[in-house]
Every structure is written in C-alpha cells, then in structure tokens.
C-alpha cells in the first residue's frame, strides 16, 4: 500500500487564553491508502483538533503534513478548499443534513460546491451510486425528517463518498446511534477502504475501534500506537 498521509511533529497550541494550551504535541502519524485507523482518547485529548488538521480545516503551528508526498502544511485556503473537495470526505457525529433538501440533494451538495461542474445526468448517476453504496438508494427522494438516525448518517456517508475521496475522516460517526445502527454505519465506512480509500475514525467505542486496522491513542496531545487488544465497551 502506498503512503498517503504523513504527519511529522505536528503541534497545535490553543492561544487566546491566559496561558497557551498545547493540544497536539509533536504528533507523528502515517496512513496508507486503503488503511483504517482508529483514533481514541479521552474527551478534550485533541482528537477533533487532529481531525481538523488532517481535514485542512485548521493549520498546524509547527510540523509537516504531507499528502501523497506533497507538503500541505501551509496551504492557502483557496487550495485547501480544492483539496478538501477532491481528496477528503467528512462524516460528523451530527449528520448535518439540510432538512429542506432530499437525501439525493444532500448528497449532491458535495458535487455542487463550485469546484468544477458536472452535468445533471452525471451528477445524478454519482449520487445514486453513492446512495447505493451505503444501501439507501430507495430513500433518495426522502427528506431527512422522514429518516431514522442510521439512515441519516448513511446519507452523510454517501455525501462523503460521492466524490470518491482518497481519505475518509469520521468524527464519532456513531456517537448519536444505538449499537446495532452504529455497527451498520461502521460497515458502510469500512466498505470504502476496500476501494483504496483511507479511513481515519475518531471514536470512543472500543468495539468500533477494534474493527479498524490500527488504533492510535491520543493522550494530552501525544499520539501513540496501541496493540489490538481492547476490551469491549466505551473508552472514556
């Protein structure tokens, strides 16, 4: 598997308070194409900040972030937006579906983002393929209010997958779901890795973390790899 992401000595300091607080402290991480990595850790340990840096929402204060061998640590916002569109898919704990749009329109949101233009027919085909991928093509015309939490999260996953991203970043995607539905969502996310997409999952759930290829533990801004011997239950 080819190396896709390499973080080297990434630090992020939270300023604006009495004393600056280090959120990420020299984080090193390498992720290959098709690999799945779970990032676990207590609340406030910096998991979401790490995901923000990985997803180009935020810039690291120091360190190097390489994607496909290219340093993207200091990318201007214009280029970062383009890269988010072409390389990344995001799934959040809350589904963030627009209630006035149908499932298909919510998925199409990632295609109608000002980064190029797809004819309507192609757009529809890709949207339906993404919905098919997560098993809810039959709900394409439904609005979010008529869907269950699991279905809504799968629409959000379809939205993340519709541009065939290289990296899928998921921030506690099962946090608002019951165990069974959560498992279905994790299945849908893992399915993407079979097509070469890297999956980075932030989770508190030991079972879901255990299903990933690797587990990394973030404590006080320091990331360390763990062995695959987590007991069932929730990490806290």
């Amino acid at each position: 598997m080819t190396e896709l992401i390499r973080l080297t000595g990434i630090t992020k300091v939270l300023k604006g308070q009495k004393e600056p607080r280090t959120i990420l402290d020299g984080v090193d991480l390498t992720v290959r194409a098709g690999e799945s990595v779970a990032i676990v850790g207590r609340s406030g340990s910096g998991k979401s900040t790490l995901l923000s840096v990985l997803g180009l929402f935020d810039r690291p204060d120091s360190g190097t972030y390489s994607l496909d061998g290219r340093d993207i640590s200091r990318l201007p916002e214009r280029h970062a937006a383009k890269l988010r569109s072409s390389h990344f898919g995001f799934v959040f704990q809350r589904f963030f579906l627009l209630k006035h749009l149908t499932a298909a329109q919510n998925v199409a949101m990632a295609l109608i983002n000002g980064q190029g233009w797809l004819p309507r027919r192609d757009r529809r085909a890709r949207v339906m393929a993404a919905l098919e991928q997560v098993g809810i093509a039959h709900l394409a015309r439904n609005r979010p209010v008529k869907m269950s939490g699991g279905e809504q999260q799968r629409v959000a996953i379809a939205r993340a997958l519709v541009r065939d991203p290289r990296v899928l970043l998921a921030d506690e995607p099962t946090g608002a779901l019951d165990t069974e539905t959560g498992s279905i969502v994790i299945d849908a996310l893992q399915e993407a890795t079979t097509r070469g997409c890297a999956l980075i999952l932030v989770t508190h759930d030991r079972d879901h973390a255990a299903r990933m290829g690797r587990i990394a533990d973030l404590r006080s801004g320091v990331l360390t790899e763990r062995s695959h011997t987590l007991s069932a239950g929730r990490l806290s």
């Binding site: 569109s85 990344f88 963030f96 980064q115």
Partner: peptide, 19 residues
C-alpha cells in the same frame, strides 16, 4: 452557520459561499 461551515468542509470556496 452550520450549513455554511459544512459547505466549506465539502470544499466550497469562500467566494462561492458569498456568491
């Protein structure tokens, strides 16, 4: 706010949001 933040997350440039 959330909608616009989400649109930025999926790659929509700031100029398009203003647009």
């Amino acid at each position: 706010v959330e909608e616009f933040a989400l649109r930025r997350a999926v790659g929509t440039p700031r100029a398009v949001l203003a647009g």
